[in-house]
Amino acid sequence: MNARPDHSVLADQEGSARDDLLMDVRNVSLSFGGVKAITDISFDVRQGEIRAIIGPNGAGKTSMLNVINGFYTPQVGTITFRGVERRSMKPHDAVRQGIARTFQNVALFKGMSTLDNIMAGRSVLMKRNIVWQMLWRGPALREEIEHREKVEEIIDFLEIEHIRRTPVGKLPYGLQKRVELGRALAMEPSLLLLDEPMAGMNLEEKEDMSRFILDVNQQRGTTIALIEHDMGVVMDLSDRVVVLDYGKKIADGPPDEVKNSQAVIDAYLGVPH
């Protein structure tokens, strides 16, 4: 599977010196009142890799994704994305910068068709104003068709042609997850955040989804950061893994190294803290 450069040698070095750095998370802490969700976490994501974030329930993984795409503002720390440092931003600005995500619980627009859901993902990329939209001629129609072609490529890629016109509320769970991936891809992100893309799937659906994730990474060159509980999937897919427990980072490195780390084994097996 691994035709990509081996990152393991440099895995534990300081990331900021590298020129293929896509995102750098520095000393981020996030708390809700007295509850500390994330404590002083630093890690980086390199261009073109699949980065996994794992950890037991309540470790702060989803909070971390929410910080990355601007849904939460961390009290301490910075995030540098493509060389631009920031602490707080609106989620729609994160999308504009090229960060797209999917959700743990499917968050599709249930009343809209598959096609409309994926087209909605391209809203940020569409420019024509309301006057052109009203007329539905010339530039507005051209733009619509142009984006439709891109969306059809994604539909083709994810093999969901047959449900193009179906309202997504009527689709089975596995397909909904796939549509959600399609919607995230439609944003043409440079960093794709996947929050438990395989939760609640059977083996076959997991295999399909894994294949799509690898294809997205290799064919479209999209960098991926994913949260997943299925360790087999994580170890097979990812280039590097960061492990969180109780909001702290306890390990960071290539899958094999992380797998054998005593701290990780303790966290998963539950050693008294």
Partner: peptide
């Protein structure tokens, strides 16, 4: 329609 169906997700798709 996206805002109607799920406003948080709408915000997160930009």
């Amino acid at each position: 329609k996206a805002v109607r169906d799920m406003d948080i997700a709408a915000e997160l798709v930009g």
